[in-house]
Structure formats: C-alpha cells, structure tokens
Design a protein around this nucleic acid. Structure first.
Lengths: 214, 214
DNA sequence: TGATGTGAAGCGGTTCACAGCC
DNA sequence: GGCTGTGAACCGCTTCACATCA
C-alpha cells in the first residue's frame, strides 16, 4: 500500500469495479480474479491489481478477490458508506431530469434541493426535493447539510453560481455548463461537457476512414 | 502538418477552442495569440500550438492567429460545417431533456427523432422531433438520414440497443447508460457516466485533506 | 521584434514480467 | 499451481526551449 496521490483515472475505475462487484454479489459469486474482472471491461489485469493495491492488499494469491469483501472495501474507499446530500442549481429540463435520474437516486446520493430564479418554478416539487429560490441558497445549504452541488444553468451565469457554491463551503461540484470555470484548489469541479462530446463524435465521422458515408 | 493519429484529448480541446473563437469573433476581436488563448483555459500555449499544427499552419509568426480564419478551419476540421442528424433512444426524463438541450439545438446538431417502447409515449412530440416506436428504428434511421445516436435507456438493455444502432449503420454513439458496451472498432462509442462522476466527487470529499468537514 | 512550429526532455499512466505467497 | 503485488520497461501526452520566419 502506497501513500501516493491517487489519479482521477483510478477513482473512475474503482467506481466501475464497484458496479461490477455489486452485480457479482447479487449473483452470488464468491471470488473473482483480476483477469476475469479485466475481461469484463476490456482492461488490463495488472491495472486492476495496481488500482486496488494503492489502498491495501485485498487479494489472496492463488485465489483472487473475495467479492463481498472487495465490494465493502471499495465502497468505503469511495466514501459511499456515508450519505451524500446533493443540490441542483437550475431547475430547467436538464436539472429536473438529473433530479429524477436513477443513478442519483440509487446508492447514497440524495437530491435534497433544487434552485432557480424563475419565480414560477419555486415551490414546486421534483421527486423528494423542492425547488427553492436561489437567493436562499446559503441558508438552505446549511439547513440541508448539502455537500455536493450540480450546476445545470446556462454558461453565462455558471461562474457566478460557482462562486456562490464555494462561498457556501461546498467542496465538490458537478458542472454541466459548457464553459471553463475557476475555483480554489480546495474545491473539486468536475465538468461534463455534452457539446464537446458531440463535437468529438462529429470529428470522428468526418475522418475519411470512418463513418463518412457519402 | 503531420499525418499522425489525432488523440481524442486533442479533438476535445479543439471543441473548446472553437467555443472561445466564436465568442472572440462575436466580440469583434481580429487576432489572438496562443499565449492569450492559453490563459483563458489555464492551458499551456505550446499545447494549443501543437494541437493546431496537426492540421496545418494556421498562425502567423509575430502576430498570432486570425480569429475568423482559425474559427473556420476548426469548424471544418471537426466536421461542423455539415449538419448532423441525431436520434435519442429512450424518451424518459433524460432523453427528453437532452432533446431539448440548448447545446444540441445550437450549432449543427439536429435531434430529429426519439425512440421508445412505451406505447403511451409514441407519437408525442419533443421540440421538433417525434417519439417513434423503437421497432421502426431501422426504417426511420434511413428515412431521416440519422448519423449520430444517443443511448438514454436503462443499463440492462443498452447493449441490445447498441447492437441495433450498429446494425443500422450508425458510426457514432453517445452513451449515457452506466455499463460497459462493446461494438465494432469502426463505431465510436463515447460514454458519459454520471454515476462515476459523482462517485469520483464522493472520493474527493472522503479524503481527509479535502472537504471532509465533519 | 514577437509569436509560431517543433524536436527533445519530462512526466504520468499503462503494460509487462516475475518474485512472492496462498 | 495459480493469482496477487510490484519494480521496470514502455508509451503517449505535455511542457520546454529555441530555431524560424512575418
């Protein structure tokens, strides 16, 4: 077990492994080798072993990993043994879709509040969460003990929203606004840029060797 | 100008540069240096120059890049000078939100069809697109000349949906289902995994040095 | 003079290959 | 015997540094 900086690529993969372990666990599988795990994701088995070895020696030589045991370890490593309370800023189509998204509802993420400035939306409910006025943001973050914020507003107000989030002491942000954002290093901002993803597909199609079917 | 394989990291950045150039162009800026561009995204100027140099010599030494000129070049490189016709499979919350998403509507991406198997949804409209029965998928892909597909269905049917997409001859896929998918190498599948993004944030919060505010 | 284009160095992540242990 | 854990080799992307050219 090392005390190095863990790369985000590693944590992303841990999340993937966990998903698989949950399925294996549900299917009653007791042990699994890194080789077998690797096959499921077209990954390299050494990479899986290395990812896991950052955090401890979870495997048994000659046997593999105990599914239940490894599942619990990764759950703890990712901090998924504690509840996370999420708010979404921007109650438009995307924001409300996210609030209702299964992936957020399952596991230990609870969307507990949405925020908007459109008075006609405020007071409505989406699933278990209420839409609040963004001017009450600071107060409700405290009251609801929110620790993760999702930005689902237009690009031109995203930085202002982020500043407000940081001011509220939230340290983890998922951003859907297609714009570069700046925040203190102590705050983790993860951007999901749908436009870039699409344009990258368009580039692929435009390459003569690929889907460029006339 | 090289004839190497272009990395996806490069194309992602091209998309970002283009967004910036559009703003500069709208603001009437005539030229910009790689140094200045780099500042806007907290990137390295050499990287920008290298990204661009893969495709030609667009700059002028001692001056920088002509905004309008570079904008047009990148637009062409990314294949955004042609229209792209997009369909979304799964007309749930996420699918309909995506259909309405601004980023998809702007630029040259048109969502022309949604698909579902829920008979109560079929026939409804979302924006300019209609919700079709997924059993008519092959036919409508041809009729509507669809070249990009978005998967917004539950994980357990995602592979079946992808197989159908590939069968229809579509070569570019944006996948929102949290599951590893397999397709022929001639097909580009780009996965956006919201659960993994969230769990990666949870990991960050669980690190003692970070947001772990008791 | 000043900013590009680019070979070379640097760095981080992946893969190999094997020692170590069950 | 079989599979893990890991140093070493490898590979690709990023950054540096500078020759080049308007």
């Amino acid at each position: 077990m090392k005390v190095e900086k863990i790369s985000e690529l590693t944590t992303n993969r841990l999340s993937i492994y966990l998903r698989c372990l949950n399925e294996l666990s549900a299917a009653g599988v007791k042990t699994i080798s890194s080789e077998e795990l690797a096959k499921r994701f077209h990954l390299n088995s050494a990479q899986i072993r290395k990812d896991l070895a950052y955090f401890g020696e979870f495997g048994v030589r000659g046997v593999g990993y105990y599914v239940e045991d490894l599942k619990n370890h990764i759950t703890k490593i990712l901090g998924l043994d504690k509840e996370h309370r999420v708010c979404i800023i921007g109650a438009g189509r995307l924001g409300t879709a996210l609030a209702d998204y299964n992936g957020f509802k399952k596991s230990r993420f609870s969307v507990v509040a949405l925020f908007d400035i459109d008075q006609s939306k405020i007071g409505q409910r989406v699933g278990n969460a209420c839409i609040y006025d963004f001017k009450d943001f600071q107060k409700i973050v405290k009251m609801e003990k929110i620790d993760i914020a999702v930005i689902a507003v237009p690009a031109f107000v995203a930085q202002d929203v982020l500043d407000e989030i940081v001011k509220a002491g939230i340290k983890a942000v998922l951003n859907f606004a297609p714009t570069p954002l700046k925040a203190d290093d102590s705050v983790k901002v993860k951007t999901v840029d749908l436009t870039t993803s699409l344009e990258s597909l368009a580039f692929f199609l435009s390459q003569p060797a690929n889907g460029n079917r006339q």
